[in-house]
């Protein structure tokens, strides 16, 4: 307690004429139980009224506030200043399009990803409002949920060196989504469809295995397990043909 924090924040507004990227410093007294969400809002209200950043739920569930905090991609709302040194460097997530300061456009990327992997349940059956729901094993429901917990914050992509170099790569978030759908008995896509979708250089074989996604994921998703499951499954599919 009682520290004076120095925030070094990346500032750039592409909509402002003649603006160029720079790092600005702000000082602030550290208060009890301070996290980066509260700190940034205080800074905006008192020192930098035009500071751009994104928060929505501020409870670690919406995935808006991914940023590089002292070099690592993570959620600002659940980063406590007491875990950080006195100097805190804030940069926007790399890879995504910069909208201004700490705000990046993750929405477009994730929408395109959803379109690419056709991220919905593929079924021929029509919904019958009168019928009882189809039964499902609770274990399967839990297993689907385990992967469904991804909040699309983009930290895995920001930490992934592969995706910086090969932007077509679906990244951990994309592969995790595919893994979630592959596990879902309601999705009627067959082996061949999965094979064509994910056995590609932009799919699971684009992954070099640098494992940063697993180290930065704020939701602790078992990402590597999902990928190895997909790899083995693809191998099986190919061998059975």
């Amino acid at each position: 307690m009682g520290r004076t924090l120095t925030f070094k924040i990346f500032r750039y507004n592409p909509n402002k004429d003649n603006d160029s990227p720079q790092v600005e410093s702000y000082q602030m007294e550290e208060t009890q139980r301070l996290n980066v969400f509260t700190a940034l809002n205080t800074l905006r209200e008192t020192q930098a009224s035009d500071l751009m950043f994104d928060f929505v739920c501020r409870a670690g569930i919406c995935g808006s506030c991914g940023m590089m905090i002292n070099g690592r991609p993570t959620l600002a709302c659940r980063t406590l200043t007491s875990d950080l040194p006195e100097t805190i460097e804030l940069y926007p997530l790399p890879f995504f399009k910069l909208l201004g300061d700490l705000s990046v456009d993750t929405g477009i990327w994730f929408r395109e990803m959803a379109e690419k992997v056709e991220s919905w349940i593929h079924t021929q059956e029509e919904f019958d409002p009168q019928a009882t729901e189809e039964r499902m094993d609770n274990d399967i429901a839990n297993k689907i949920y385990e992967a469904e917990r991804c909040i699309e914050c983009g930290c895995c992509l920001a930490g992934c060196a592969t995706v910086q170099v090969y932007p077509d790569f679906l990244g951990a978030a994309g592969l995790n989504r595919i893994g979630r759908l592959m596990n879902d008995p309601r999705d009627q896509r067959g082996d061949q469809e999965w094979f064509e979708l994910v056995s590609t250089e932009s799919g699971v074989f684009g992954c070099i295995g640098m494992m940063a996604c697993d180290d930065v994921c704020p939701k602790d998703l078992p990402l590597l397990e999902v990928f190895s499951y997909i790899r083995r499954k693809l191998s099986k599919i190919e061998l059975s043909k």
């Binding site: 690592r72 494992m211 180290d215």
Partner: peptide, 29 residues
């Protein structure tokens, strides 16, 4: 550059001794 930047990506307080590798710094990149 990215590899160096995210070196510190280890998990914090909630790390159980029995849990996976995150106690050490991220080095794989």
């Amino acid at each position: 550059k990215l590899g160096k930047s995210i070196k510190g990506s280890k998990n914090r307080w909630n790390q159980e001794i029995t849990s996976d590798i995150r106690l050490r710094n991220h080095s794989e990149t």
